[in-house]
Design a binder for these strands. Structure first.
Length: 432
RNA sequence: GUGGGCGUAGCUCAGUUGGUUAGAGCGCCAGGUUGUGGCCCUGGAGGUCGAGGGUUCAAAUCCCUCCGUUCACCCCA
């Protein structure tokens, strides 16, 4: 079979599904704007160096998952694998830090990573996310976590778990890393093979290994919470207190370490346990060193990224997507080729006024056209047939109850516009 | 990159120990009403059985290779 298909790990959103995505995106934007975030649209590709510096040279994303190309000017460009680096770049480039002490931005769009696809993972996938820049207070951490949680709740989701942890600042993390490394080195032979590699490269990642043997060993290893400096401890305590004050339940996950290098202090995930192996709906945390690392001033930041495919799957699982229709308000049915011209004119005039109007093929039978109108979900059909046309009339049929009446051709468009308006808003997207 | 499952009509799937022209439901088209949708009835179109090779008198069925897909590992949204 030499059919050309969508590339591995990508997919087409067909009209019915796209309608559900539009609904979801509208809700997402509404909540993000309510929390004071403005949308930023950055390029889908960036200089490769941005991601190398921002995400970290030794992360899997940068080492083996980026779609990198060389353009005709010899520049190395990369399709963005995540959103934060681009937002930070734009923040610095446009000197937003000089305009206000705090900047709140959100983005939504496609990301690209060359990984093997599986449940909840794609090569082109979609994320929305927020970045709150310029605020070092734990209030910012709490706001961002609560925003994510509220957003999911406003979409109707339940049974979500917030997993929360801190990874400290560069100073206390260094101390912890040393303690952890020596503790793990003592039991190195018992660790799984991948963990023995992790021990060398990034010992923190041993903590969230899925192997039961490793989990058993990790249980006896020191916790980061015993190595936090006073400031980091205080920061984390204040974040948890704020969450408790507004009644947001969370689970302390001392083993939660996120994969991107830029995180400091607070890290969190919100998961849906029914999603399979890739069960995080969103993940994020604080990144106080990132702006400086990317060439800007020392501005703190906190944010999260949320996977839209995973959100969509969860909405489907929990049956929270309403019935949506894009059916036309009016379906014009000409009987015979002669009257097709009339039908076309009526349809065009009404479309220009903002009504959604479809029309049938005049060479087909009335029965066939009505069937099509019904399947399309039309509210009304306008039958233009020879008999009534001879008398200067047309027939308007209400599909829901089958009733119909004749209307004079003069003033027809205005009359139909009046009737059809009662049916609903003059936009194709209707929520039932 | 590694490992397991699965590829039969537009969709969801049957297909016996290898054995006639590969089936069903849904969907699609048409008719049952010389101009009336949904329900019902009748008929029709639609398949190189993922691709290539092999075994056999005979392969959708058994074997090999490749491709696709899916789940998991790694990692992450």
């Amino acid at each position: 079979m030499n059919l050309i298909t969508a590339p591995r790990g990508t997919f087409d959103l067909m009209p019915q599904q796209a309608l559900a995505w539009q609904w979801m995106e509208t809700k997402i934007r509404a909540v993000l704007q309510a929390y004071g975030y403005g949308e930023i649209r950055t390029p889908i590709f960036e200089h490769t160096e941005l991601f190398q510096r921002g995400i970290g040279e030794t992360t899997d994303i940068v080492e083996k998952e980026m779609y990198t190309l060389t353009d005709k000017g010899g520049r190395s460009l990369t399709l963005r694998p995540e959103g934060t680096a681009s937002v930070v770049r734009a923040y610095i480039e446009h000197k937003l830090y000089a305009q206000a002490p705090v900047t709140k931005l959100y983005y939504i769009g496609p990301m690209f990573r060359q990984e093997r696809p599986q449940a909840g993972r794609f090569r082109q996938f979609h994320q929305f996310g927020v970045e709150l820049l310029g605020e070092e207070s734990p209030v910012a951490d709490a706001e961002v976590i609560i925003l994510a949680h509220d957003l999911y709740r406003q979409l109707g989701l339940t049974e979500l778990e917030i997993h929360l942890n801190t990874v400290g600042c560069p100073h206390c993390r260094q101390a912890y890393k040393a303690a952890l490394t020596s503790a793990l080195a003592a039991v190195a032979e018992q660790l799984c093979s991948t963990c023995r590699v992790r021990l060398e490269r990034n010992p923190l990642r041993v903590l969230d290994c899925k192997s039961p043997v490793c989990q058993e060993l990790i249980g006896r290893v020191p916790s980061i919470h015993n190595y936090l400096c006073a400031d980091c401890r205080d920061h984390f305590d204040r974040v948890t207190t704020l969450l408790e004050q507004v009644g947001v339940k969370y689970e302390l996950s001392p083993k939660l370490v996120r994969g991107l290098d830029y995180y400091t202090r607070t890290v969190f995930e919100i998961i849906n346990v029914n999603l399979g192996a890739q069960n995080a709906l969103c993940g994020g945390g604080r990144y106080d060193g990132l702006v400086e690392e990317c060439g800007g001033p020392a501005v703190p930041g906190v944010g999260f990224a949320s996977g839209i495919e995973r959100l969509f799957t969860t909405l489907e699982q929990q049956k929270k997507i309403p019935a949506l229709t894009s059916g036309p308000q009016l379906y014009v049915v000409p009987l015979g080729e002669e009257l097709t011209v009339v039908a076309f004119e009526v349809a065009t005039v009404l479309r220009r006024q903002g009504f959604s109007v479809e029309m049938g093929n005049g060479t087909k039978s009335l029965k066939a056209q009505l069937k099509t109108a019904h399947k399309a979900g039309a509210a009304y059909t306008l039958i233009i047939g020879e008999d009534e046309w001879r008398e200067g009339q047309v027939t308007l049929k209400t599909m829901a109850d089958g009733s119909q009446k004749r209307l004079p051709v003069s003033g027809l468009v205005a009359e139909i516009a009046k009737l059809v308006s009662l049916q609903g808003p003059q936009v194709p997207l209707r929520e039932e």
